Simulated assay, not measured.
Amino acid sequence: MRRIQLLLVDDESDFLIAYARRLARRNVEVSTAPRARDAIEAIKAAHFDVVVMDVMMPGMSGIEALKTIKKIAPGLPVILLTGHANSEAALQGMAYGAFDYMLKPVGTDELYFKIQEAVRAGVAGVA
């Protein structure tokens, strides 16, 4: 089975390091970006099956980045993560085309299953 190509975007380096390691053990090829602008550049430069991105980041928010990502790669599934039970941000993200959103802290298994679901949906959407 082909490894899932994941772009993990979060301004918290501890989160990036921990989840990149955990997901790598589950046959996921993880690229990381500490800022939304870095994520957008990465998406322009390489192929990803799915993006997992924090909503609250300095500079450009995850919601703003989502809008740009959907212009660059409309079929790319984006899962938003939020540390705040902010239903407005979640609804806004869904309105702009996010695949889903999850509340932090998120369990590795829970996140992995959501990533698999997003990849399956993305592949189905492309076919």
Score class of each variant (00 low, 15 high):
113 F>W: 14
21 R>H: 13
99 F>C: 02
24 A>S: 11
37 R>H: 01
70 K>H: 07
110 E>Q: 14
9 V>I: 09
84 H>R: 03
49 D>G: 12
51 V>Q: 04
70 K>I: 15
2 R>T: 14
20 A>Y: 06
93 G>N: 09
93 G>W: 03
75 G>M: 15
27 N>K: 14
53 M>F: 10
35 R>H: 11
1 M>E: 06
101 Y>C: 02
94 M>C: 05
41 E>W: 10
115 I>T: 08
117 E>H: 01
116 Q>N: 00
38 D>I: 13
102 M>G: 00
89 A>M: 02
50 V>L: 11
16 L>N: 11
91 L>P: 04
52 V>C: 03
48 F>Y: 15
100 D>C: 11
118 A>E: 07
33 A>D: 03
43 I>R: 13
35 R>V: 11
111 L>H: 10
22 R>K: 13
47 H>P: 13
3 R>K: 12
26 R>K: 14
31 S>R: 14
113 F>C: 03
11 D>A: 04
44 K>C: 06
13 S>D: 07
123 V>R: 02
81 L>D: 01
51 V>I: 14
114 K>V: 01
105 P>N: 02
49 D>K: 13
1 M>R: 12
37 R>A: 04
109 D>A: 14
7 L>N: 07
59 G>N: 00
54 D>L: 06
27 N>T: 02
12 E>P: 02
55 V>E: 09
112 Y>K: 13
